[in-house]
Design a protein around this nucleic acid. Structure first.
Lengths: 144, 144
DNA sequence: TTTATAACGGATATTAATGTCCGTTATAAA
DNA sequence: TTTATAACGGACATTAATATCCGTTATAAA
């Protein structure tokens, strides 16, 4: 569904969000260990999240990454997905046709947009704080 | 959602299916023109469909591709998607975790499988004949 | 001020997906 | 039997995604 990069990005942001609720900032090495992702590549993922103003990075000793606490209620998975994979997941036709729409639909159109819109709605309505509240247990599963 | 190859494959099979209902077989060049896909690449797509026994190919003059008529009710989009993209769309965790499941779910699990299962159901229950019957008009939109 | 730490940023490497080329094989019609 | 046609199949080319490397920059603590 999502690209590899996007999956790493989602895992990272959820992990950082959780640590933020405990007033911790976390380093690259910790993040990549906790979400089970290649460290050097994860550095790029985090850069992208930083540049897009999703996370805040702090350089130097005792540095790391965190999320501004007031953003936990605001940042949605939709934004994160959009950063890594663009908006194709919300807009692309199931058969890859650029001009397909309700007026001039491909054979799959109606069945497909039903699913696509549900996905869009789900991602747009999943905030980081919401996700953390909904956890089955106090345990956050982001590895394997 | 689907790979480029898969989208071409779906467009091709739907076009061939429709032509089959009119007792026509169609050549590579016709198919790639009608579904607006690169011809040489489409040849590979069709080979894959042929090897997977979805379409039947006929070599030589007046040759081309067709679907055995009795298969129109049987072949689902699910099978075609599976040929090109494998089953990850039905099985992969939203965050890319290999061990994620209902007993040990990732934070997105419940919300995600709801969508994923709907997609799976939709694809498994979309036969070629069904799709063609559901058409809004007699016009089959598979280009652009 | 020096030193250690951790993110930054650009270059490079690897792999998979996408796409093309061209000679080969099968076959229908002349 | 010859010829033209159209799929087949393998090699090759290009592009995008994934991933790594390493010197640079910022900063906190000693």
């Amino acid at each position: 569904m999502f690209s590899n990069s996007c999956e790493y990005g989602l895992r990272a942001i959820i992990f950082i969000a959780q640590q933020t609720t405990q007033n911790n900032k976390v380093s690259l090495s910790t993040i990549s260990a906790e979400i089970n992702s290649p460290e050097a590549f994860t550095a790029k993922i985090l850069q992208k999240l930083t540049r897009n103003n999703i996370v805040k990075s702090i350089k130097g000793p005792y540095g790391g990454f965190k999320i501004e606490e007031d953003k936990l209620d605001v940042i949605t998975l939709s934004e994160v997905v959009n950063i890594f994979d663009g908006d194709t997941i919300y807009t692309r036709c199931g058969l890859g046709l650029s001009q397909c729409n309700g007026d001039s639909p491909c054979p799959l159109h109606h069945k497909f947009i039903e699913i696509r819109d549900k996905l869009k709605y789900m991602l747009e309505n999943s905030t980081l704080s919401g996700l953390l509240n909904d956890l089955d247990s106090d345990l956050l599963r982001l590895k394997r």
